Amino acid sequence: MNCRNCNTSLRTDYSFCPDCGAKVIRNRISVKNLLYDLIERYFNLDNTFLKTLWHMLIKPHIVCGGYIAGIRKKYLNPVSMLAIALTSSGFILFLIKKVAWDSIDFSSISYAQTSTGGSGTEKIISATMEYSSLIYFLYIPMIAFAGFVVFNKKQYNYAEHFVTAIYALTSFSIISTVYQAILLLVNPQVYIDTALIYVALMIFFCVYVSYKNSKFSKTSLLWRVPTFLLIFFMDYLGISMLSIVMLFLTGDISIQDFVPKN
C-alpha cells in the first residue's frame, strides 16, 4: 500500500509514514474512530493541548519563549489554541443566547444601562455578542502592544509579543470555559453581572504572562502593571467607541436608545 498523503510505498505493519510522518488510515470514518481521534488528540495525559494549558498557568515563559525560540513540537501552536478558544467561546455564546437569555434581568445590569431601561440594555448586549469574535480578535493586538511597550526586556519584536498575547488570551478563555458554562446553567444573572470582573481577570492573567516572559524584577511591577493597564485601557476605550459607531452604522442600536425618557 502507499501513503495517501505523499504516495510513498509502505509496509503493511507501518502505523505512520516514514517519509511524511502521516498516520496510516486503514478504516473508513465512523463515529467511533472520530471520537477516538478527538480524545487521543486533546485529552490524553501526554498530549500537547493539556500540557500547554497547564504550563501556561505555572510557567508561561517556557511555552511562549519556547515557541518564539523555535520549539514548535512540545506545545500546541498559537493558531490551534486560537481555533480551540473561538470554538469554546462559540459554545458559551450558544448557552447565553439559547439557554440563559430568558433568565437574565437586563434592567439590573449597571454597566450597560440606557435611557430605555432593560430593553435597551438587552438590545446593546445582544448586538455586541454578534461581533464577539471580532472583539476577541481585537484584544490580541491591544495586549501585544501593551506588552511590547512595558515588558520587553528580551527585545522581542511586536509579532513575537503577538504570539504571547494569543497564548495568554486563549489559555484563559479555554480554562475558564467550564466555569462559565456551569455559571450560565446555574445562575446566568451572576454571569452577566460579573462580566467586567471576568474581563479584569483576563487582563491580569495577560499581565502575569507578559511579566513571566520578560524576566523583569518584581519591584518594577509597581509601575509596569499600572502602565500596562493604562495602555490597554486607552486602547479599550478606542475599541469601545469604534464598536458603538459600528453598531450605529449597522442599525443595531439607534440614538433613541440613549434619549432620556420624559
Rank of each mutant, 00 (worst) to 15 (best):
A146E: 00
A85H: 04
F94I: 12
G120Y: 00
I124F: 11
I135Y: 06
D102Y: 14
I62T: 05
G117M: 09
H61D: 14
F137D: 03
T87Y: 07
I140D: 01
K123D: 05
I68R: 03
S89E: 07
Y158M: 14
T87R: 06
V63P: 02
F106D: 01
Y139L: 11
K73M: 12
F91W: 09
L53S: 07
G147K: 03
V150D: 02
G117Q: 10
V79I: 09
Y131I: 12
G147Y: 04
F106P: 02
K59W: 01
L138W: 03
E130A: 13
L169S: 00
S103W: 04
P78T: 02
E122R: 08
L76F: 10
V163T: 08
F49K: 05
S103Q: 07
K73C: 11
L138E: 01
E160V: 07
K51V: 03
N152M: 09
M129A: 13
K51I: 03
K51E: 01
F162L: 13
K59T: 00
V150A: 05
L86F: 09
S80W: 08
S171H: 07
I125C: 12
A144M: 05
Y156Q: 04
H61K: 12
T52N: 04
I96D: 00
T121D: 07
G65I: 01
S133H: 14
M142C: 09
